[in-house]
Design a protein around this nucleic acid. Structure first.
Lengths: 159, 159
DNA sequence: CCCATATCATTGGTAGCGCCAACGTTGGCT
DNA sequence: AGCCAACGTTGGCGCTACCAATGATATGGG
């Protein structure tokens, strides 16, 4: 770390996927660092948020809602359960399923992470005006929705 | 059948870092799949692009230009060298350094990847108009530049 | 001229995220 | 009953991003 970073190839500077990647890397850095200070990581927040919003749910449903693979949900829930932020109990009506419930401590942790996350947005979007942030959200949402539709199962058959 | 993906938590839907992450994940998916079909990955393109634009360079400089860690540059260049897309030669004026040169095959591969990457942008930005794409590029560039400056070494002292 | 410091390439390790295959269990449908 | 689908779980893989340490080499200040 001495003299300034050298300029990246021009070829990349106007490529959306490169720009997205750069911003995502920075965002990921912020989230990782600050969530780590709160003994959490991205998957934990996503799962807690889904539980708080939709109530107790099976692991499969949590995976669908958060976009986390089933197998990764298992590991993340293990970590959350170790910290007493969620509880696993068998579903009496379907013995294949677990019912995951957020604990009061889980709710508090989520509130705290909400604050951490809000600050991250503030720092990430620092150079943008309020109007520009809205516009960025709008454009990104359009892209996400477009490809979410294209990837959703019912697009594979006419359901 | 409830096959469709369930909605994600509202809490996340307007969080820029979440949206960025979603778009980045999709973009990463596209890049990985299509570059793999061309026997390449993201690091390879970045390095070839830097070599094509700035000419032969040391590994450290390539790392700085592409934002790839020095240690990862080693591995990626090994792969590129195995494919005869670059050449490593010692720098006669500084025996610590290697001089990395792109081969003609490397140039051809880069041209091909340029095309692949262009198609990826097209698909990624499909739901956006030309004007909106420009706006997205503008906003993302502002964020990247802002934080690049904030992270650059000279900000650590008044050099 | 020598020594401290810095840079270089390289090795090896870690973490987070995303994904896939396989397994045994259980439920729903016919 | 028999078949297929969904569930939780285990184990594994690849890509990106980092960090620490090492030995070789330059460089600049005393």
């Amino acid at each position: 770390m001495m003299t300034g970073d050298q300029a990246p190839p021009r070829r990349l500077k106007r490529v959306p996927s490169w720009l997205i990647n750069q911003v995502s890397a920075h965002s990921h850095r912020l989230v990782t660092e600050r969530f780590a200070a709160a003994d959490a990581r991205g998957y934990h927040y996503r799962l807690l948020a889904a539980l708080a919003e939709f109530g107790p749910a099976s692991q499969a449903e949590l995976g669908r809602r958060t976009g986390i693979d089933r197998s990764d949900v298992v590991a993340a829930l293990n970590e959350l359960a170790d910290k007493k932020l969620i509880e696993r109990s068998p579903d009496p009506t379907d013995r294949r399923r677990n019912i995951i419930t957020i604990t009061p401590e889980g709710g508090h942790r989520l509130s705290h992470l909400d604050g951490v996350l809000a600050q991250i947005q503030e720092d990430l979007c620092a150079p943008l005006s309020h109007t520009e942030r809205e516009e960025l959200i709008r454009l990104l949402t359009r892209i996400v929705d477009h490809h979410a539709r294209a990837r959703s199962p019912e697009s594979l058959r006419g359901k």
